[in-house]
Design a protein around this nucleic acid. Sequence first.
DNA 1: CTAGTTGCAAAGAGTTTGCATGGCG
DNA 2: CGCCATGCAAACTCTTTGCAACTAG
Lengths: 139, 139
Amino acid sequence: MQKSTYNTKQKKIIYNFLLQNKDRLMTCDEIADSLKAEGTPVGKATLYRFLDSLVSLGDARKLSNEDKKCAAYQLLDKEMNCKSHLHMKCTCCGELYHLGCEFMHSVGEHILNHHQFIIDNSKTVIYGVCKNCSAKGGI
Amino acid sequence: MQKSTYNTKQKKIIYNFLLQNKDRLMTCDEIADSLKAEGTPVGKATLYRFLDSLVSLGDARKLSNEDKKCAAYQLLDKEMNCKSHLHMKCTCCGELYHLGCEFMHSVGEHILNHHQFIIDNSKTVIYGVCKNCSAKGGI
DNA sequence: CTAGTTGCAAAGAGTTTGCATGGCG
DNA sequence: CGCCATGCAAACTCTTTGCAACTAG
């Protein structure tokens, strides 16, 4: 889990919560509120500090392109191998999708070979509208 | 240019500056500082208000995923048809690249057909490292 | 016991808003 | 001349930092 020196109660709480929500991008406020609602509140400062340490260790990522002003965090699931593929986020319902198919891997190769650009999967999110939402007429 | 009611001096200044820098994603501070340096300073509040109106009119876009905490803006160039293709930004040098080739258009179709997801080109930026920077050993 | 960690509160940074003044049409 | 826009300053929001109390090892 975390590689910091001490394995505190708060870190376990935060990490477990992220693990349960590994398919979501959540802001600090959302995480703090959820933890408080679960009866295991953690200080905002602690949250920010621990999340940033997870990000710098490469265990989580931090994204801001959310129309919101605040950053969203997500655990980079090792089993799902999240670092090896891109993700799409529906701007309507917020659902996050993994793009792990063969074709999409060839996209990375195309961009590398034809555009000489190395994609950073952990910093990139493709935004758009998923089928559920476009069926409902969402934008 | 802008569809707001009055065509003021400040709006012209801001719009022309964005036009000259249409290949860059710039923060409010950068824009304000540049305009001040050019001897045509514009108030921050005016900048934020006009940029947001351009964004809601679809003439510009606002992105935040910049490691920076603040948002970056860019005019959506109609001649380049920026809304019809994706963009890549080098996290090292900041350069913005247009991905207007045929293959990349087929990516949009693949994602639509196989993942039932409609990409929003104006909200998406692919992050990574360009050839110049990887040659220099950049990350 | 000792060093890292927590959490409050204060400081910072970026953005938004209220309001009197100013300028476009 | 009326109404919208500007710009200052204050208000807000999100995030970071300082510091004393706390706790894991």
